[in-house]
Design a protein around this nucleic acid. Structure first.
Lengths: 141, 141
DNA sequence: CAATAAACATATCGGAAAAGTATGTTTATT
DNA sequence: AATAAACATACTTTTCCGATATGTTTATTG
């Protein structure tokens, strides 16, 4: 039941960017250094954020990344889902319709559906803005 | 963000047992067949349930497993935690005190703590009894 | 306009953990 | 004594995460 580094790094990086001036382009190398993440590995993660429309990248000298949306309009759930692919706790929920032959009368399926809902609801209740200027407990349940 | 087969199988198996007569010992081979899980692999999972005090095993001919507690006193959360080890969404939460050097001023840590709480709260709100006789929606949120 | 600095793209690799197997031991029943 | 079950441990296989390597494109700057 672990979030992979993709999701964790993505979240840290989004917060890192949100903490700087919103009109400034932050280059990947700087983020990588501050967050202690390999540049090359980060590229893949930032690429997914860009494709998802959460970041905007600018090439060439003086380029870098900045948020594509206001930080209070980006939820943690969105960031993690984009980085991670899905927050489904079991594989059979990732594709719909459910491919599992047992799905029809699986006694545990509704529990997993409920769990996915609960997880998404929690993570979507928190924005990057909450995390950036947030002291811990203005969003912690 | 996946639950491993240990947790998923454990839950299915606990429900399977709860659906039979409570005083009867169900043998592993039967469960394995019904649930379509390799016997040998199941042994490890049932062993963890037994150690956790959720099942009681009886050796020898006519032996098998039965619940050690009433099904409405066994939460899904407990089963999954015992099978899986922990439901912490990030490794750094698994050991306390937190070993991560960044923990002190990690902007994302409180979010992970909150997520762990939310997950546990949801899964602890559902019992094996709910799942066994449950039609889907008397516990689905 | 050449040199440089950045993002962007794709392929590959190593290793750890998950998933499953194999072999053997103990305990109870018949 | 024979058999059927749980229990225990060690091993193998497979999958996928995390990371690296190499190269391309686009913008700035001197």
């Amino acid at each position: 039941m672990k979030i992979s580094t993709k999701g964790r790094y993505a979240l840290r990086v989004m917060v890192d960017i949100a903490e700087r001036r919103s009109d400034e382009y932050i280059k990947l190398a700087d983020i990588a250094e501050r967050q202690d993440i390999s540049e090359k590995y980060l590229e893949g993660i930032l690429s997914s954020m860009t494709k998802a429309g959460l970041l905007h990248g600018l090439r060439g000298k003086g380029g870098g990344y900045r948020l594509a949306l206001a930080p209070d309009r980006i939820t943690a759930g969105r960031v993690i889902r984009e980085a991670e692919g899905s927050l489904a706790p079991v594989t059979c929920l990732a594709s719909s319709p459910n491919q599992c032959p047992r799905a029809a009368d699986c006694k545990t399926l509704p529990l997993w559906q409920g769990l996915e809902k609960a997880v998404n609801a929690y993570l979507d209740s928190i924005t990057i803005a909450d995390l950036a200027d947030g002291g811990a407990d203005n969003y912690c349940i």
